[in-house]
Deep mutational scan, measured.
Amino acid sequence: MSRVPSPPPPAEMSSGPVAESWCYTQIKVVKFSYMWTINNFSFCREEMGEVIKSSTFSSGANDKLKWCLRVNPKGLDEESKDYLSLYLLLVSCPKSEVRAKFKFSILNAKGEETKAMESQRAYRFVQGKDWGFKKFIRRDFLLDEANGLLPDDKLTLFCEVSVVQDSVNISGQNTMNMVKVPECRLADELGGLWENSRFTDCCLCVAGQEFQAHKAILAARSPVFSAMFEHEMEESKKNRVEINDVEPEVFKEMMCFIYTGKAPNLDKMADDLLAAADKYALERLKVMCEDALCSNLSVENAAEILILADLHSADQLKTQAVDFINYHASDVLETSGWKSMVVSHPHLVAEAYRSLASAQCPFLGPPRKRLKQS
């Protein structure tokens, strides 16, 4: 649940008159999402009104509101027999009622949201009550392989729920002597030191190019640089560091992050930047690179990204790559990247197969709970 924001200063709310007192009302909304995959969808019983329910879910471990999704594969009634019906059901509720908006969509073979439908307002739910769409999607369109909505005969539904909580009022009075504290510009100011090479005390040599930097900042941000300058190493004695395995453009992006906490060109060089972040123990930059690479996972590059993640101990990226390969196994196994990995990294192939087997055979063990970014 997000923290209630402070109200904007009255002088910034309007260029008009300023009242002596004010009130700011925040209506709290808890948002969460749920993904439900139905394997072997074409084998569902086709009687009209037949119901399939998901397991229950909530916004978190401490949330007492429990929900589930309900599907009628062949419609709810005679009117909707040519459609799939989809509903959000409130299973248990400690209150007399709650209000919530919802959005349903289908994830296609690429994991993209399609055929989205959402409620136009927050509906009133009581325990045992459901709301949804009797005519969510035509069955003939859903079952047509050309539309790519049932890869490997799996129907994957994605649901986003927004639950309306209580409202909170914050009130106060205006004073004539309003003090406005300026925003912190530390990142910009440190970035200026790097860009202008002011007050530098060490030189970093990268592929024949020299960059002036500040030992204190490098040591504070990177345990690797800290070790170089702290001990009686040649880098500490000469205040000069030779860097041979990072390209200059990648190095500059890494230094921008060290000084400012930002990497504006990360998406263009996420793979190389991940390697640099791993070498210099820049954990936050490493996770930022993992996130960017996750966003660009595809059938063509899944094997290469899995190898990269394994090489640099990028655990979150590795998990996402394995899950992606499992979901698109029939396509990924035909790529040149996968065939190369079979020869060069057989242990990763074995890991992917083990994960695929456990996903398809849940009876082999208890269900695993899916539970950071600093």
Rank of each mutant, 00 (worst) to 15 (best):
P8T: 05
P8S: 08
P9L: 02
P9K: 13
E12Q: 08
S15Q: 09
V18L: 04
V18A: 09
A19Q: 08
W22I: 02
Q26F: 13
Q26S: 06
I27H: 10
I27G: 14
K28Q: 12
F32L: 14
S33Y: 10
M35F: 04
W36S: 01
T37S: 06
F41K: 13
F41W: 09
S42T: 10
F43M: 05
C44G: 11
C44S: 07
C44N: 03
E46Y: 07
E50G: 01
V51D: 07
I52A: 03
K53C: 02
S54P: 01
S58G: 09
S59T: 01
G60V: 10
A61G: 12
N62A: 09
D63I: 03
D63S: 07
K64C: 13
K66P: 06
W67M: 02
N72P: 07
P73V: 06
G75R: 13
G75D: 00
L76A: 11
E78I: 06
E79L: 12
S80C: 02
K81Q: 13
K81I: 02
D82T: 08
L84D: 14
S85I: 00
L86A: 14
L90N: 04
V91I: 04
S96N: 10
V98E: 14
A100I: 10
K101E: 11
K103P: 00
K103D: 08
F104V: 15
S105L: 11
L107P: 12
N108G: 13
N108I: 01
K110H: 05
E113L: 08
K115I: 15
E118C: 07
Q120T: 14
F125T: 00
F125P: 04
V126F: 08
Q127M: 13
Q127A: 07
G128E: 09
K129S: 05
W131F: 00
G132N: 00
F133K: 11
K135S: 15
I137T: 05
R138Q: 15
R138G: 09
D140E: 08
D140V: 06
F141I: 08
F141W: 13
L142A: 12
D144Y: 09
A146N: 06
A146I: 09
N147E: 07
G148E: 04
L149E: 10
D152G: 07
D153Y: 08
K154P: 07
L157P: 01
C159R: 00
S162A: 06
Q165Y: 07
D166N: 12
V168L: 02
G172T: 01
Q173M: 02
T175N: 05
T175L: 02
R185M: 07
L186I: 07
A187N: 12
D188M: 05
E189Y: 05
L190K: 10
L190F: 10
G191N: 13
S197N: 15
R198Y: 15
T200S: 14
C203A: 14
C203W: 02
L204Y: 12
C205L: 10
E210H: 14
F211G: 14
Q212T: 15
K215L: 03
A220Y: 14
A227F: 14
A227K: 03
F229L: 14
E230R: 02
E232Y: 13
M233I: 13
M233A: 14
M233K: 14
E235R: 04
K238V: 06
K238W: 08
D245T: 09
E249G: 04
E253A: 08
I258E: 03
Y259L: 05
A263V: 06
A270G: 10
A270I: 05
D271L: 06
L274K: 00
A275V: 07
A276G: 01
M288D: 02
E290C: 07
D291L: 14
C294A: 12
S295Q: 11
S298E: 03
A302T: 08
A303C: 06
I305W: 08
A309N: 02
S313R: 07
Q316D: 02
V322F: 10
I325R: 00
N326R: 07
S330T: 03
S330R: 01
V332A: 04
V332C: 13
L333A: 05
G337T: 03
G337L: 11
W338Q: 00
V343L: 05
S344C: 13
A350E: 10
E351Y: 02
Y353V: 09
R354K: 12
A359L: 06
A359E: 06
Q360F: 08
P362H: 14
G365P: 13
G365L: 15
P367D: 15
L371E: 05
Q373H: 10
S374K: 13
S374V: 10
